[in-house]
Design a protein around this nucleic acid. Sequence first.
DNA 1: AAAGATCGCAACCGCATTCCC
DNA 2: GGGGAATGCGGTTGCGATCTT
Length: 262
Amino acid sequence: MNEIKKGPWTAEEDQKLIHYIQKHGQGRWRTVPTNAGLRRCGKSCRLRWINYLRPDIKRGKFSHDEENLIIQLHSVLGNKWSIIATYLPGRTDNEIKNYWNTQIKKRLLKIGIDPVTHTRRLDLPPLASILFESDLSSLLAVNSELLNMATSLFLSPEQKSPHFIQGNQQIGNLQTQNHLQLSQDCDYFQFPIQGVQASLILNPLCPSFIDESQFMHIDQEQLLTNDSTFTCQSLNINPNNWTDCSNSSNVNNDEIQMFLNC
DNA sequence: AAAGATCGCAACCGCATTCCC
DNA sequence: GGGGAATGCGGTTGCGATCTT
């Protein structure tokens, strides 16, 4: 009976495979079962080694940073698990895929974010209204992890800086980059216009956490002056408005650029 | 306590890509 | 360049563990 065995691996099988690979190295998977004395197919041996037995595999819970990174990478790469895994040393594509499907996906759906497009789901009431109809402080306390996760969607991997405002209140992260400055009191933010390759990374999700009735404008008058900075009172939900502002002034689109991080 | 439901994850399967003759 | 073998990838499944009723 040389039937190929399927199903869970036993400790004995694991030992045989580990011993064989330690001695001969990995590769030529088709020949591994015969040479290692296993009744498995080569494919199964490879998978067991790659996903479970490899010595450099990191075990245990995903850290918050790892989780953020997965979300960020997924928003750019989609289900390219093997590529995503290259950014998380010690984690396998299978593990990341499982984690995404069983944990992250559910959490995103729960907070009204489409895990495929990484945008707000239109079939749900605006998140802001949910937030403001609720006891905000308790909601944030309970869901701070989710908020951080959602917030991280509009942060690039190398830019994880704090402060996300709702009116004068800090409730999460606001991204600043290059010459974009967040004012001290979080009442408004400002950045230089002239000669600056200002890159404001704004994700459409971001305003979900801000009172939608307070989407503010850029002060057009200020924009048209030669002042080196201009201010706006809050984040603007509509990225097109930024473009419009730059079109309507002496400032061209090269000087104010908007990059959507999704 | 027990039965059913749900969850989490290892493993499988089929297809795509790469390698090698 | 063509074809078969080997390898890699992503979706899905199966099953034990845990939770809920």
